[in-house]
Design a binder for these strands. Structure first.
Lengths: 238, 238
DNA sequence: CGTTACTTCTGGTATAGACCAGAAGCAACC
DNA sequence: GGTTGCTTCTGGTCTATACCAGAAGTAACG
């Protein structure tokens, strides 16, 4: 008993949504081109695009700039309270994580960063930009600010590895507490481009501040996720 | 030093984004109609709509079905670990919360709900549908399933009030733990309509399971938020 | 063999119209 | 005074077409 659909783009949406749920289209698989779909269903490309955009908003498909539309793989579950590294939680869920280091610089803190990281203006901050992928699909851009004063020599380490592991092994320093903020919003132009997507992609912003036992800011982490790639899960116990 | 914008819709986006940040347009204020904007900037309505949609994706504006586009108020911060009721955390941030009860029914649990709530199939579940608003703007649809066996007589209470308060006062039963899941996705047709929006609205789904001290499921809560209305914030301490 | 240049395919952006459906205000009517 | 029905304004959907820009494959070239 399917509801009658009178909108063309909704019909498309339901059609592909059905195919994906039935696994007639598999994760990562490419959809036909917008023009092909339009021909097959006798619809204008604009209408086709509207249908595809609603599927994108639902998280069922995603696009790669000028390459095409693809079926979204299942979202990875991210449970921040577990203190697992990206590599740990992605691979434990049966996916293949990878990391590209986009940039490493050491910069003096400006007024804003100094306040956020509770350091003096001009303090040396290590700034990392990384792109992280799941099964080869870029899903996440990270901007990380590290307080070098608390972690001397860290700028000489391999920054494409897990920071969690690095801090554990080299500095014997487990994180003590963290503050997390999640916000659903569009991805900024830079982040979107580095994910191989057009700007305006629906995204999830995560802001994470990591503190040591004395309440000092070890690390400030901005994550920009493709919105279909992740589900957040948290347990709260009184 | 503004970057040169060569896309028309991006120009619009930047233009309104600027006006909103400068508070030349205030929260809740209505934008000119799509046709007016098109005339003023010499753009097609389709192009105008694309610009507005990117602003919507950013969370700067929202629409009400066939009424117009409006500037989004600041997002309310929702900190689930604090165990505050909607009324508490909204009003403590200087906004005016309100609740509409859309539906109350008592239904026997089907197979799926029985499993989720760890009850026998056919067990009586109280099902609530509520719409919650901030400063008169509908932001959230709630679907709540309550295990009546654990909370006898609860179906006779006023269900437009805070459940948190009700459980505290009438049943002396504080929640013990909860499991939370966040997912960025499009709002379902029903939820979108009840929020006065078109389907496909970018949204945030929150699924919350509340347990008592014995690990029994007191309440299962599905929340469908307008994505621009809320920011999630959590502190994690080891 | 590796590089370059061309061609083709893809989505990205934009124009110019059209008609529909719901929201809201208003005027006439009872 | 309240209801009814019309008009107007709004966004919602859709057609038909055009050109641009980046990705990818291919053929020619050194």
């Amino acid at each position: 008993m399917e509801k009658q659909i009178d909108n063309h783009y909704r019909y498309l949406q339901q059609h592909f949504s059905y195919l994906i749920r039935q696994q007639a289209l598999l994760p990562g698989e490419k959809l036909p081109s917008e023009r092909d779909i339009g021909e097959r269903f006798n619809l204008t490309r604009m209408t086709v695009r509207q249908g595809l955009q609603t599927l994108e908003a639902e998280g069922l498909i995603y696009r790669q700039n000028r390459r095409g539309w693809f079926v979204s793989p299942p979202a990875v579950v991210y449970n921040p309270a577990r203190r697992q590294s990206f590599i740990e939680y992605v691979s434990s869920q049966g996916f293949e994580p990878s990391t590209d280091l986009i940039g490493v610089t050491v910069n003096p803190a400006d007024a804003r960063m100094a306040e956020l990281m509770k350091v003096d203006k001009g303090a040396r901050l290590l700034f990392l930009q990384r792109r992280r992928s799941i099964d080869g699909r870029p899903v996440l851009i990270e901007h990380i600010y590290i307080n070098t004063a608390l972690l001397p020599g860290i700028e000489k380490e391999d920054m494409s590895q897990s920071l969690t592991h690095l801090l554990r092994s080299k500095y014997g320093q487990a994180y003590h507490s963290m503050n997390l903020t999640f916000k659903s919003t569009a991805l900024q132009e830079d982040a979107a481009r580095e994910l191989g997507a057009a700007a305006g992609l629906p995204g999830l912003h995560i802001e994470r501040t990591n503190y040591d036992a004395s309440g000092r800011v070890l690390e400030l982490d901005y994550e920009y996720w493709r919105h279909d790639a992740v589900t957040i899960q948290i347990d709260v116990i009184d």
